[in-house]
Design a protein around this nucleic acid. Structure first.
Lengths: 242, 242
DNA sequence: GACTTTTATATGTCTGACAATTGATTTTGA
DNA sequence: TCAAAATCAATTGTCAGACATATAAAAGTC
């Protein structure tokens, strides 16, 4: 629609775009086998290495998979949630690290996104989700935990919150976003005292979800956001004073 | 951390992963030039075509760009928001179309995500954002508009809402998500009467944001969600009856 | 009939070459 | 001397052909 009239970039890029459009348009359905590299080379009037470069581009986006052997070839991939996660996380992580996003902005986005699913999560969370939250809270209260491990557990806690909404689309969008922000969050130092407060707030959130009280969960999340940003400010101040 | 001990996949995939990790870790900063293909081939003990396939994988993810000529080569790309959007949208679109996500689930996610930013948008929206919303509402009330065009304008309206929060991270995450759901929304047929009601609700949202009243905007969004889902149900019923 | 071997087909990789592009260098001309 | 033009060199883009390797199906063997 946009670039059919203006062939841009290398041949391999053009061929990749052509095949990608066919997949998105539904001309190539899931698990359909593409012509062999030799046949594609003939169709597009290019050499096999060029076709291969195009196929590798698509493989990098998890649009196709390749199999060797007699019945092998390139197949349209059934895009799975984990694949999409992985891509979104690398993209988002790089985007955040390259665009001078402040911790405050990232925090604001993260908690706003999480609040988006408290209502649903309060309504639908299973015992499993609550158990995961409690388990992560226990881990977070262990002494001697590194800042990175604390952050990772924090992500797991919030991921359980999101998954509690029982909406795969929200899980995909939000969990990816939250995970991508982890490197930024890792810059915050968590003292024993601050961890204590965070775990207490996590407890409030878990309690509220267990009681199916979305408003309380929202309030606790908002308080957690403010506290996290204040911790981040301390780090920045310490940096500035040096 | 996860795959350093288990080299998996083709050589080109391994090399791509290796370079990608270096970029993410910050060993290769933005605009840094990678070694030439010949040098990379020597370093990794592979042939140039293999290196090229690896580079194409990275180029497909917008991690690097290549330039021909004497001072050319592969450079670490400064990932821009538009690039990231484009990727997220294609990925999300395929994910949604391949995983039998119901319109109801998509709607639920979409409006929950949008409600995530009403508070910020009510607080910070500029005159520009309000003007965009009004303009899209005007377009939506034009007779003779196709369902696709109506949906596209709908996306533009909601995008202005999201942008009003003045948080680039949220804009990136949410606008991408909303746009990816457009194909699903396109399945809904909008009669003149339903359009009228939707535009009225859009008006309520715009009014609420102009008055900086987040609660009213939330309520209107919730009503819009319920109405959209009821429209979708009609479409499904019609399908079932045939 | 079950197991083994062969074979065909496909991707994965290598070698070597040439074309195209483009900044840098050298030459040329006034 | 300086500027324009020609040349050069480095690098990516593309090609052709070959061999290695994996894999499922076909053929052969007991």
């Amino acid at each position: 629609m946009k670039n059919s009239s203006t062939p841009q970039g290398d041949l391999s890029a053009q061929i990749a775009a052509s095949i990608r459009d066919a997949i998105i348009a539904g001309d190539l359905i899931v698990d359909a086998r593409l012509p062999s590299e030799a046949e594609l080379a003939e169709q597009f009037k290019v050499s096999r290495p060029t076709v291969r470069e195009a196929l590798k581009r698509l493989a990098a986006q998890a649009l196709i998979r390749t199999q060797r052997g007699a019945t092998g070839g390139a197949f349209v991939n059934h895009l799975k949630y984990p694949d999409a996660y992985a891509q979104q996380i690398t993209t988002s992580t790089l985007l955040l690290s390259m665009n001078e996003v402040s911790i405050a902005t990232a925090c604001e986005a993260r908690f706003a996104l999480e609040r988006a699913c408290t209502r649903l999560s309060a309504e639908r969370r299973s015992a499993d989700h609550l158990a995961t939250m409690r388990a992560e809270m226990f881990r977070q209260s262990q002494p001697g935990l590194s800042d990175e491990a604390f952050c990772a557990s924090d992500v797991a806690f919030h991921r359980a919150l999101v998954d509690g909404a029982q909406n795969p689309v929200m899980s995909y969008q939000l969990a990816g976003a939250v995970e991508a922000m982890q490197p930024l969050m890792n810059m915050i130092t968590f003292t024993a005292r601050s961890r204590e407060k965070i775990v207490a707030l996590h407890g409030q959130i878990a309690d509220a979800l267990e009681a199916q009280n979305a408003a309380d969960a929202d309030a606790a999340l908002t308080e957690l956001e403010a506290y996290t940003i204040s911790l981040a400010r301390d780090v920045l101040d310490a940096h500035a004073r040096r």
